[in-house]
């Protein structure tokens, strides 16, 4: 009888992995088919893309795909507009590689205690991170 281990190993060897390159940061990792880019990064202990809600809602893992084929699942329109989607912007938690990808990190984890002046400036900036909060200021 074929062991469960053999079956798993066999499946693994058949799974297609894409190489994800995060330009600027010189970070790269393998992303198995069917696994979103952010999850692959987390599973391999890599860093580079900020990790937020992991559900396509908060926008902190926003990236721009500079090259490569991919598909996305539904992402909040409040975070990725239709125009941005056409320009290659995506949320890494909803991004699935169909081949090797080159990514630029766009999203940022907002600073919890950014000074007022800075947060006011950030809110109006293009591709600004989600607004900053004032638990302490």
């Amino acid at each position: 009888m074929r062991s469960r281990c053999a079956a798993l190993c066999s499946n693994r060897s058949e799974a297609v992995s894409a190489r994800i390159d995060i330009v600027d940061d010189a970070v790269h990792f393998d992303c198995p088919e069917g696994v979103d880019v952010l999850h692959s990064m987390i599973a391999l202990g890599r860093r580079g893309i900020p990790v937020g809600c992991r559900g396509g809602g908060c926008g902190v893992c926003k990236v721009r795909v500079l090259g490569g084929a991919y598909r996305t699942d539904r992402m909040s329109r409040a975070r990725i507009t239709e125009e941005e989607e056409k320009q290659g912007f995506a949320l890494a938690c909803k991004l699935y590689a169909r081949g090797d990808l080159k990514l630029q990190v766009v999203g940022k984890m907002a600073r919890a205690f950014a000074p007022c002046k800075e947060t006011m400036h950030c809110t109006g900036a293009p591709h600004a991170p989600p607004g900053s909060t004032s638990w302490r200021r």
């Binding site: 990790v51 937020g52 809600c53 809602g57 908060c58 902190v60 909040s76 409040a78 984890m109 907002a110 600073r111 919890a112 205690f113 989600p130 900053s132 909060t133 638990w135």
Partner: peptide, 11 residues
């Protein structure tokens, strides 16, 4: 300790 994800990630 403050946790930036908890403090700043919202929908």
């Amino acid at each position: 300790e403050l946790n930036e994800r908890f403090l700043t990630v919202v929908t």
